[in-house]
Simulated scan of single mutants.
Amino acid sequence: MTQTFRLLILFLAILLISSGSYGQEKDDYSSKIDSLIKMTNPRSFNGVILITQKGKTKYKKAFGYSNLGNKTPLKTKDNFIIMSNSKQITAVLTLKEVEKGKIDLQSPVRKYLPDLLQTWADTVTVHHLLNFSAGIADIDKPLIFKPSSDFKYGNTTYIMLGKIIEKVTGRRYIDVANDLFQELKMKNTFCFEQGKEQNRVQGYRNTNNNFAIVEKPIENNDMVSAAGIISNVIDLNTWDELLHKGKILKPETYKLMTTYSITAQHNAFGKEKIGYGYGIRISDKTPIKYVGHTGGGSGFVSFKVYFPKTDVDVIVLENQSNENIDLFYEFEIKIREIVMNSSLMK
């Protein structure tokens, strides 16, 4: 064997070793997520995970069952009720009407909903509804704080926004939303409709890893604008790609959506208060900025966050909701942490 040939063999061996270690270094999250999902204590995972970067799939897997009774395996294309992630869609639909001049963010809600009985309808604005700073706990009761002074999360304000959208468009919220999904080519995204057979997985209530079917996850069609959109991880990734890259709202409107004047704490986003814009949480004090939202209850959990600097999108959907609130986002929190500490952030 000549000296030149030996050097060539050595060079190729070094190249193979270095490329192998680079590949391992490049993907330092998949095996961690796989190991995490194997955990069954304190609760098990039953859902779908999708992670993308710059439009390319980095992780895409389904675990568990779409129907626990007949053990039908979940598929990554399966549809879930996304619960409060629906609020982000309602916020965008509201802002699109703002762009058309049909809604004024600083106008009192009585302008659009004149039949409201409470006097606060003259002081609470559309802006207050969007970022939960209105002080509304119940539509039939007085405010619990002065508008803009605090944060109170709930479904009522986004049900009101759905009604405002109907008022200014002269159409059902369901039809306005479904039209947007068609326009964005989100073919598997649509509104829940009571009494209508729809393509989605079954939702379950989890109590100590004992599962019970949730027969009626959405009480009525009025709830759709707050918690009743049905979608899958693929379409929600499309939504995030288009929303965060200026393909749904004008730049100035998107800036309004992602600017905050109020902060709030949420377990899925950490122990500290972070910003809340319009249907979106903004974590800009962490080492890596990210934006997103959650949804959960009535047999479903949804979680999605987007990291603007690295163009990483993380979406997790589960067809179970835990009775123990401390375990609600158990896996979602850890998946976020794995991603935030991975090579995807470099």
Rank of each mutant, 00 (worst) to 15 (best):
F5A: 10
R6D: 04
L7R: 15
I9P: 00
F11C: 14
L12Q: 07
S19Y: 09
G20R: 06
Y22S: 05
G23N: 14
Q24M: 14
D27T: 07
D28K: 08
S30C: 14
I37R: 02
N41W: 02
N41G: 10
P42I: 13
P42G: 08
G47K: 04
K56M: 09
K56Q: 15
K60S: 12
N70K: 07
N70A: 01
K71M: 06
T72E: 14
P73V: 02
L74C: 13
K77C: 00
N79E: 09
I82G: 01
I82T: 09
S84V: 09
N85M: 15
I89E: 05
V92A: 12
T94P: 01
V98A: 01
K100L: 09
G101L: 03
K102W: 00
P108L: 03
K111F: 02
L113P: 03
H127S: 11
H128Y: 02
N131F: 05
I136V: 15
L143T: 10
L143K: 06
I144E: 14
S149H: 04
Y153T: 03
G154Y: 02
N155K: 02
T157R: 00
T157C: 08
Y158N: 02
L161V: 11
V168A: 09
T169V: 10
Y173A: 04
Y173F: 15
D175H: 10
V176M: 04
D179S: 13
E183W: 01
L184N: 05
N188A: 15
F190Q: 07
F190P: 03
F192L: 09
R200E: 06
R200H: 14
V201C: 12
Q202H: 04
Y204Q: 08
N206K: 10
T207E: 12
N208L: 06
N210L: 07
K216H: 13
P217M: 03
E219N: 12
E219C: 01
M223R: 05
G228C: 11
N232S: 09
N232T: 11
V233C: 06
D235N: 13
D240I: 00
D240Q: 03
H244T: 12
K245T: 15
Y254W: 04
L256Y: 04
T258A: 10
S261M: 00
H266L: 05
N267P: 02
A268W: 10
K273R: 08
G275E: 07
G275N: 06
G277V: 11
Y278K: 08
G279K: 05
I280H: 02
R281N: 10
S283F: 00
K285V: 14
T286L: 11
H293Y: 08
T294E: 10
G295K: 02
G296P: 02
S302F: 06
K304F: 05
V305I: 15
P308E: 10
K309L: 11
K309C: 04
V312M: 09
V312H: 06
D313K: 05
V314A: 05
E318W: 09
E318P: 05
Q320L: 11
S321G: 13
S321Y: 12
I325A: 14
L327A: 03
L327K: 13
F328D: 04
F328V: 01
I335C: 11
S342E: 03
L344K: 06
M345W: 04
M345V: 05
M345G: 02
K346W: 01
